[in-house]
């Protein structure tokens, strides 16, 4: 025969089960979405890099042709030297890679952050919100986004400087061959990833908040 205590225990277990289901619905779907976005970020970074290093535009129905210089992420505008045509293929392969490096670094950083975030969300879904793994994960996301954002900025500045050097060297070569040069370039501002940077600092703050939460949870253990 069932006692009142059994019924109360059943009711409590049922409430706990409902809470767990709600929590899992609210965290596992975002975790899956984040992992898919992470894969897309990594793929787009790799494909963008490959396209720039290859120096050609993939055509679906027609011959591939060299990429224009102003298709480089660092350039807004490029006026061809009067008597010659300069394309991305006229840059050394390592400079093309350097031009693509900030985009690649950004994509890999976002993919890694997505992977870490997915792990954090899974921990929360499993009811270990204030566990050490969540705190570690948030700390890693913070470092990744803050340091990664500065690395992307540094790579972009470096690429911009090197591309300018190559363009002016090309223009000088045209002039030395007796050609007329009227090269002009417009550059992008170095990319400052303010949103990932801000999210990195938010992750650091959350890490401390979760650390406080863990302490409170420990304090509340056994409180009736």
């Amino acid at each position: 025969m069932r006692s009142d205590a059994d019924d109360s225990a059943d009711q409590l277990l049922s409430e706990v089960g409902r809470d767990r289901d709600k929590r899992q619905r609210a965290t596992l779907w975002p975790a899956r979405l984040v992992s898919v976005l992470g894969v897309f970020a990594a793929l787009s970074g790799v494909l963008g890099t490959a396209s720039l290093v290859w120096g050609r535009v993939w055509m679906i129905n027609g011959p591939d042709h060299p990429r224009e210089l102003d298709s480089l992420p660092q350039l807004l505008q490029f006026e061809q030297p009067g008597d010659a045509t300069m394309t991305v293929l006229d840059l050394p392969a390592w400079v093309r890679f350097l031009a693509a490096a900030p985009g690649l670094a950004q994509a890999l950083m976002l993919a890694a952050a997505a992977f870490l975030l997915m792990r954090v969300l899974i921990e929360i879904a499993d009811g270990r919100s204030f566990g050490a793994e969540v705190q570690r994960g948030l700390g890693r996301i913070g470092w990744l986004l803050v340091v990664g954002s500065f690395i992307v900025l540094a790579l972009d500045v470096l690429a911009l400087w090197r591309i300018e050097v190559e363009i002016w060297a090309f223009a000088d070569a045209v002039r030395n061959d007796g050609g007329v040069t009227s090269t002009g370039i417009g550059t992008e501002l170095p990319r400052i990833l303010w949103l990932p940077l801000a999210l990195g600092f938010v992750a650091f703050a959350l890490r401390w908040a979760f650390k406080d939460g863990a302490r409170l949870e420990k304090d509340a253990e056994g409180v009736i």
Partner: peptide
């Protein structure tokens, strides 16, 4: 009983048992 106390106080049996 513990269950009756739980019912009367609104505190769970689990907590009262602890």
């Amino acid at each position: 009983t513990l269950a009756a106390l739980a019912e009367a106080t609104g505190i769970t049996v689990v907590n009262l048992s602890v």
